[in-house]
């Protein structure tokens, strides 16, 4: 994992590996974990007044992440971890051989998961927004008098009922993926997501 594009060791703790995730990505990641948890629980238990606020925060976070995917540090850019289908299949093959190829940014399996989670979250927050404007007579769409037909409103409600369950499943797969990768790559991914870099190869 040493082939960072522009390694700059200056100022780093002794024995630590090069920077993997920039400050934005790390704050984004853990804020998202907390906020999605709060959004999910407040939604499930119908604590509506707080739910929409948690939802807005999630919406803000993923919007910021989307922008960061174009202007952020190299490892954080979407371009860095959009892989061709061939490369993705090759990665899965190497994974099943228990000899996965190493990547500095997300590996192809992890990248798939990242896009999956971001798309799910975008759909969940958008449908929540539409449902709020149509059925709850609240929020920006209601305030701006956006006309929403019953058909669209019901569709948004349906999506907002189903996708959070799918999200839970996706999150479980994401965590499972990280556990498998931690073992296979002998790299402490959790530490990288907190401190920005792995301390040492374990």
């Amino acid at each position: 994992m040493q082939e960072l594009i522009n390694p700059d060791e200056e100022g780093m703790m002794k024995g630590s590996t090069p920077m993997k995730w920039d400050l934005f990505v790390r704050i984004f990641h853990w804020s998202l974990v907390v906020m999605v948890t709060l959004a999910y629980l407040s939604g499930d238990f119908d604590i509506e007044a707080l739910h929409s606020w948690f939802g807005y925060v999630v919406m803000g976070l993923i919007t910021a992440r989307f922008i960061w995917g174009f202007i952020g540090s190299i490892n954080a850019r979407f371009r860095t971890f959009i892989y061709s289908p061939t490369e993705t299949m090759a990665y899965f093959a190497s994974m099943f051989r228990n000899a996965p190829k190493h990547y500095v940014s997300h590996n192809p399996a992890g990248a798939l998961m990242v896009f999956m989670l971001l798309i799910l979250l975008a759909m969940i927050t958008l449908s929540g927004l539409v449902y709020e404007g149509w059925g709850e007579y609240e929020g920006p769409l209601w305030q701006m008098h956006v006309m929403i037909s019953d058909q669209v409103g019901l569709l948004a409600k349906g999506i907002h009922r189903q996708l959070p369950e799918m999200l839970l499943f996706a999150v479980a797969m994401h965590v499972l993926g990280v556990i498998i990768a931690t073992i296979q790559h002998k790299e402490n991914f959790l530490r990288s997501m907190w401190y920005g870099h792995d301390k040492l190869k374990i």
Binding site: D8, E9, M12, I27, S73, I74
Partner: peptide, 26 residues
């Protein structure tokens, strides 16, 4: 924006403080 790619630009202590502040606020 790319500056953050280089850990060297901020020393670890500064970064930790900044991180804590932003986390708390966010």
């Amino acid at each position: 924006f790319l500056a953050v790619n280089n850990a060297g630009r901020m020393d670890i202590q500064q970064e930790n403080t900044l991180k804590k502040i932003i986390l708390l606020v966010a």
